[in-house]
C-alpha cells in the first residue's frame, strides 16, 4: 500500500486518506476565496446604498416577516446539515441521508420564499435594471441564491453516490465537504440578513 492511500483508522472516516485531508484543506482555502468574493459584493452593495435613481427604496419594500422566515429556514437547514454529519460519524448512512434530504428540502423552501420575494419586488418596480442600488441588491442576493441552488444540485449528486456506493472514505469526504459549503452559505446569509435587511430597514 503506498503512502497516498494509507488509511488512518484513528481519524473520522472523512479524514482517513491523504487525498481526503488534502481535499478538505483545499476546500477551506476555497471558502477563503469565497469570503473575498462576497466581501466584494458587500462592498459594492454598501457603496451603492441610497443610489435609487427614481426607483423605490429598501425601507418601502423590505418586510421583516418574509425575511425572518427565510432566515429561520436557512438557520435550521444549517442545523440539520450539522446533524447529518453527526450521524455520519456515528456510522449511520441512513441518518446521514435522511438529514441531508431534510437539509435540501429546507434549502428548496428557502429558495421558494426568496424567489417569491424577488417577484414581489419586481412587481413593485424594483429590478436589476431599476437603479444602482437594486442592481447591487439583486446581484448580492442572487449570487447567494445561486450558491444555494448549486448546493442543492451538488447534494443530490452526493446522495446518489451514498445510495450507490455506501459510506466509505470517499463518500464521507464528499459529504463532509458539501456540509462545509452549506454552513458557509449560512454564514454569508447572516451577514446579508444583518447588512442588507436589518440595516435597510433601520436606515
Amino acid at each position: 500500500m503506498s503512502h497516498d492511500e494509507a488509511i488512518d483508522p484513528n481519524q473520522p472516516l472523512e479524514f482517513q486518506t491523504e487525498k481526503s485531508r488534502l481535499n478538505i484543506l483545499g476546500f477551506w482555502i476555497f471558502l477563503g476565496a469565497e469570503i473575498a468574493l462576497f466581501g466584494t459584493l458587500f462592498a459594492t452593495y454598501f457603496v451603492l446604498t441610497g443610489r435609487l435613481a427614481d426607483g423605490p427604496g429598501p425601507s418601502e419594500l423590505f418586510e421583516l416577516r418574509g425575511v425572518l422566515i427565510e432566515t429561520f429556514i436557512l438557520l435550521t437547514s444549517s442545523f440539520t446539515c450539522g446533524i447529518a454529519i453527526h450521524e455520519m460519524r456515528r456510522g449511520s448512512r441512513k441518518g446521514l441521508m435522511i438529514w441531508f434530504i431534510l437539509t435540501m428540502l429546507l434549502g428548496l423552501g428557502f429558495l421558494y420564499f426568496e424567489i417569491e420575494e424577488f417577484i414581489h419586488y419586481i412587481h413593485e418596480g424594483a429590478s436589476l435594471q431599476t437603479s444602482a442600488f437594486w442592481s447591487a441588491f439583486f446581484t448580492l442576493l442572487g449570487t447567494h441564491g445561486a450558491h444555494v441552488s448549486l448546493g442543492i444540485g451538488w447534494m443530490t449528486m452526493i446522495l446518489i453516490q451514498l445510495a450507490r456506493n455506501g459510506l466509505n472514505s470517499t463518500t464521507a469526504r464528499k459529504a463532509f465537504i458539501i456540509s462545509l459549503y452549506w454552513h458557509f452559505l449560512d454564514v454569508v446569509w447572516i451577514f446579508i440578513f444583518t447588512g442588507v435587511y436589518l440595516l435597510g430597514m433601520v436606515m
Binding site: V47, L48, R51, A53, L128, A132, S135
Partner: peptide
C-alpha cells in the same frame, strides 16, 4: 458584464451607477 449585457447599473452614468 451585468451592466453591458443585462442592463444593470453598477458603473453607468445613469440611474445611480458609479
Amino acid at each position: 458584464t451585468l451592466d453591458r449585457i443585462f442592463g444593470a447599473h453598477f458603473f453607468t452614468l445613469m440611474d445611480g451607477g458609479m
